[in-house]
Design a protein around this nucleic acid. Structure first.
Lengths: 240, 240
DNA sequence: CGCAACTTTGAGCTGACTCAAGCCGGGTGG
DNA sequence: CCACCCGGCTTGAGTCAGCTCAAAGTTGCG
């Protein structure tokens, strides 16, 4: 098989990688990409696997290639809050800090492309474009975090759950429009995780799903699969 | 008057500016600083003044020189959430986006050093160190936002108010220790604003202040001044 | 088939909200 | 100098959204 014109000279690892275009690797030259790829490893983690623990030393960063990573924080008495979800091709890791301030866990089965900390930081120093991409991603995450603060602080349980379903749906299909027909997707989180994301209890989340179902907004199959029948009505229930 | 050795050749505007050291201007050469200073203006805004509205076009960025700027988001029905507080020498503005996604308002009387958007973005392109500083600040804000998500999603009203007072106290005096004697400072926010920051109502915030007062943790003068008598007990009430 | 984990549903409780007064300090004008 | 007002804060009483505790229903898996 001949090399694709765009992948000539690129590491096999990167040839079909989404992060090379939309993710931070897009900032690298073919040469640098080769260098980074040498130090990188593609790895899988299954649902529930802890990728990095709170207060652990950070030895590596990673790109999400598929699946969903959840970022969580916990209070000393065990109360937990999910503070972010990372989808492909997001970058996972906190540059310029050796100790993690949160835990990262595979919410679904996940594929990661993992780089040693030192290599990434060296490249960042010599390739401003890489730092620029990282800034862009960090700003995006900050915007998301702030949007979510409004949801956590000011929305009702019904609005929180509607906002959550909408957010997931939009991540699966970014082109989704209010007037379009049904959209189907799998929730990447259990009821307990959704509760931890929304600052609610499992029971309240479940009741809100039931309500949306009885109002004909969604259908649910096997607990995780959502068929979103009335996008408009869901968007209206989300508050904003 | 002779120039201080450290300010030789620097714009008068910047000579005594905190942002030159701790803020993003520290990334600039004397030459660039001069260039930026030419396009900059120091301005004051009084308490309550809107610095930039939601969905407005961003024409300038700014450094906070003194006072506190609050960043707010609002739902269509008027519910409001404060999503960030900026103290000196923080940078205010969202790079790489022409339209603001939140409103910035002077929470107290504020001094700002304001730069035209175009100038900052040009310098960012030619001075990677500037982008690096911006990345550092953005990461710091992201960490803060995520900490606050835990507070909003999982803490009780009592813990929220304790966390808030502690956060403000630590911003006024970063060296504050649990065992130390009383610390006095002014709250930069009204009860209504504290409520919007914590996802509570005015009344609940007020009741929690009263409780802390009756427990001997704090004293309050003229509504705004807090004398923090028992730092340890306050920290214990903050959850975490 | 049977267990274990997850989800749903129900019933009662409670922390924070709503609504309504009253209080306090600062400014204004008589 | 004092009476008044106004905005911000506090306090009280009653309500309710979301929580807790409990039980029953699903689903997936060995």
């Amino acid at each position: 098989m001949r090399d694709d014109i765009h992948t000539t000279g690129l590491p096999a690892l990167c040839a079909s990688c989404e992060a090379r275009h939309r993710g931070i690797c897009g900032a690298l030259t073919a040469e640098q990409l080769t260098l980074l790829a040498k130090a990188s490893s593609k790895r899988r983690a299954e649902e529930g696997a802890e990728l990095i623990g709170d207060a652990e030393n950070v030895e590596s960063y990673a790109n999400v290639l598929s699946g969903v990573v959840k970022l969580t924080k916990m209070l000393s008495d065990g109360r937990q809050q999910i503070v972010g979800l990372q989808f492909a091709p997001d970058f996972v890791g906190r540059p310029f800090r050796t100790e993690s301030t949160l835990a990262a866990e595979a919410a679904t089965d996940v594929e990661l492309c993992s780089f040693p900390r030192a290599t990434v930081e060296r490249m960042m120093a010599e390739q401003p474009d890489l730092e620029h991409r990282l800034l862009e991603q960090t700003l995006k995450e900050l915007d998301q975090a702030r949007d979510w603060m409004v949801t956590l602080g000011r929305k009702t349980a019904a609005e929180k759950v509607a906002s959550f379903i909408l957010m997931i749906a939009r991540n699966i299909d970014p082109t989704m429009q209010p007037q379009q027909r049904a959209v189907t997707f799998d929730l990447p989180l259990s009821r307990a995780e959704i509760a931890d994301f929304l600052g609610l209890t499992i029971e309240t989340v479940s009741r809100q799903f039931t309500r949306l179902r009885s109002e004909g907004v969604i259908r649910i199959e096997h607990n995780r699969r959502v068929i979103l029948d009335d996008i408009r009505k869901l968007a209206a229930s989300a508050g904003n």
